[in-house]
C-alpha cells in the first residue's frame, strides 16, 4: 500500500522536456529512496510533486489527487519538504525560519530542540551565517514542526562533512519511525542504512522500482542504473539540470 502514487509525471520547462513519464510509489512506512545519476530528474520529480514546476500526470496522496493543487495546498495536506538547496531564508533568524513553517496550533518545538539543540542556542542568528549542516538542520526541523504525513528530503547530506552526514542520517532514521520519508540521495551508504523501498530514475523516466538493499547488493544492476559501484562517487555532485 503506497502513500504517494505518481503516474506518468511529465515536466516541460521553457520548451525543454525534463521528465518524460515518471512513476513512483512511496511506501506508507519507512524511507523510500529516489535514486539516479545527476540530471536524471530526481529534483524535478519532487518539485513537480510539490507543485513548484508546471506538471502533467497524476499525483495521488493518501487516496486524493494532489496533481493540480498549488504548492501551499499540497503542503497543507501534510507533506513537509526540505528542498535540495535547503531553502533557508538567509536574512531571517533561525527562530523566524522555524516560525514561518508553523502550521499546527502546537508546533513540535520539543522534538526539534531535542534533535537539534544547536538550533535553540542559535535561535537569534541569521540563518545565512549558519554552516551548511546547521542550515540543513533548519530545513529538516521545519518539516518536523508540524504533524506531517510525509516528509520529502532532497539530498539532505549534499556537501556536508561525514560527521554531520551521520547526524542527519540519524535524524532521518528517527523521523522515519513515525512518518514516511521520501529521500533523494546520492550517498548510497546512507541509502543502504535507512531506505527500504527505492525508485531509480534515468533520463527523466523511471528505470527501476524495488527493494533498496536488493538493488545495492546487485553490483551489475547498481552500476547499470546508478553508474557507480555501491559507494558514493568521488567527484562532488554537480547541480541538476532543472531550474531552482
Amino acid at each position: 500500500m503506497s502513500l504517494l502514487t505518481v503516474r506518468d509525471l511529465r515536466v516541460v520547462i521553457d520548451g525543454l522536456h525534463i521528465l518524460h513519464g515518471v512513476d513512483l510509489d512511496v511506501a506508507a512506512t519507512g524511507v523510500t529512496a529516489l535514486l539516479g545519476r545527476n540530471g536524471a530528474g530526481k529534483t524535478t520529480t519532487v518539485k513537480a510533486v510539490m507543485g513548484l514546476v508546471p506538471r502533467t500526470g497524476t499525483v495521488t496522496f493518501d487516496g486524493t489527487d494532489i496533481g493540480r493543487l498549488p504548492t501551499h495546498r499540497v503542503v497543507r495536506r501534510g507533506i513537509g519538504y526540505a528542498p535540495e538547496d535547503r531553502g533557508v531564508f538567509a536574512h531571517l533568524s533561525v527562530a523566524e525560519n522555524l516560525r514561518l513553517a508553523e502550521r499546527d496550533p502546537h508546533p513540535a518545538y520539543d522534538l526539534v530542540h531535542e534533535l537539534f539543540p544547536e538550533l535553540e542556542r542559535r535561535r537569534g542568528q541569521p540563518a545565512g551565517t549558519l554552516s551548511g549542516g546547521q542550515q540543513q538542520m533548519v530545513a529538516i526541523a521545519r518539516t518536523l514542526l508540524n504533524g506531517n504525513r510525509l516528509i520529502i528530503a532532497d539530498e539532505p547530506t549534499k556537501g556536508l562533512a561525514p560527521k554531520i552526514v551521520t547526524e542527519v542520517a540519524d535524524v532521518l532514521a528517527r523521523a522515519a519511525e513515525t512518518v514516511p520519508v521520501l529521500l533523494v540521495e546520492q550517498n548510497l551508504a546512507l541509502v543502504r542504512r535507512v531506505a527500504g523501498h527505492c525508485a531509480v530514475l534515468a533520463d527523466g523516466r523511471t528505470a527501476h522500482q524495488g527493494d533498496a538493499r536488493a538493488l545495492l547488493a546487485d553490483e551489475d544492476a547498481a552500476r547499470r542504473l546508478l553508474g557507480v559501484g555501491a559507494h558514493r562517487p568521488a567527484a562532488p555532485a554537480a547541480p541538476e539540470g532543472g531550474p531552482r
Binding site: 510539490m50 513548484l52 498549488p70 504548492t71 501551499h72 503542503v75 497543507r76 519538504y81 528542498p83 531553502g87 531564508f89 538567509a90 536574512h91 531571517l92 523566524e96 516560525r99 514561518l100 513553517a101 502550521r103 521545519r142 508540524n146
Partner: peptide
Amino acid sequence: TRYGLIVRAGVEDRAMVTALGIDV
C-alpha cells in the same frame, strides 16, 4: 507581524514560502 515575516521571506524566496504551506 506574521505577515511581515512572510513578506520578508517572500522577498528572498517566494517559492519556498509556498513550500512551507503559506498562501503567498
